[in-house]
């Protein structure tokens, strides 16, 4: 979807992407554009450096929930705070995927993971963090939305949101991010279809979809 949007907006030759540490760690092999590999959690800072050197180019970070909502919280909040004209694609699958299914800040209460084997306990480590709502409160944010991949209509809305995010960057309005609820069958211990269903049954009630900020 991200690649389709970059092509449709005709900005491919002036766009770079940043792959995080996480499931998308090899993204530099999948986007035929200038690409960076960033240290875990630091993609928004790397994007800031790139954008300050080339303000008329475009940059996106493609980050998972461990990368963005845990180790990289300061970087994403501060990038939004500064109104960096960058776009972040935030994949929320409520778990650390690449490393084998550990609990993430977005793991739901009661959700079993390899580091919350009895289910996430609110008293022990709090309730999941809602990044879209949080970042929408920051004035530097110009477009913040949350979408999901579980149904065809949601897929269509996700692509529209990604396009809107890049358009926000092109129009230099400020920071843009699309949080995308995504399946992780492997680590959720579900079939792909069950995982998609679980997004609808469990994730969306806690992570409401919609546009939280639009300038």
């Amino acid at each position: 979807m991200v690649a389709e949007v970059i092509e449709e907006l005709g900005i491919r030759e002036k766009t770079a992407g940043i792959a995080p540490v996480g499931c998308a760690v090899f993204a530099y092999n999948y986007f035929d554009i200038d690409m960076y590999e960033a240290a875990h959690g630091r993609a928004p800072a790397v994007a800031t450096g790139y954008k300050r050197v080339q303000p008329d180019h475009y940059i996106f970070t493609y980050q998972g929930d461990g990368d963005l909502a845990s180790i990289g919280t300061a970087e994403i909040v501060q990038a939004a705070h500064r109104g960096e004209k960058i776009t972040t694609i935030f994949i929320n699958n409520a778990i650390y995927g690449m490393t084998g299914g550990q609990m993430a800040p977005t793991t739901l209460v009661g959700q079993k993971t390899t580091t919350s084997p009895l289910g996430r306990d609110k008293e022990h480590c709090g309730e999941p963090i809602r990044m879209a709502e949080m970042l929408a409160t920051i004035s530097g944010s110009a477009f913040i939305a949350r979408c999901a991949l579980n149904t065809t209509p949601n897929l269509i809305k996700t692509k529209q949101a990604i396009k809107k995010a890049f358009e926000t960057q092109i129009a230099r309005k400020g920071f843009s991010m699309v949080e995308i609820l995504s399946p992780c069958p492997t680590n959720w211990g579900k079939s792909p279809a069950e995982a998609m269903d679980w997004i609808g049954e469990a994730m969306i009630p806690y992570y409401p979809l919609g546009v939280f900020k639009e300038v």
Partner: peptide, 10 residues
């Protein structure tokens, strides 16, 4: 990491 981004852009 900002230095990393800027240096990467030459």
């Amino acid at each position: 990491n900002m230095v990393y981004g800027a240096a990467g852009a030459g």
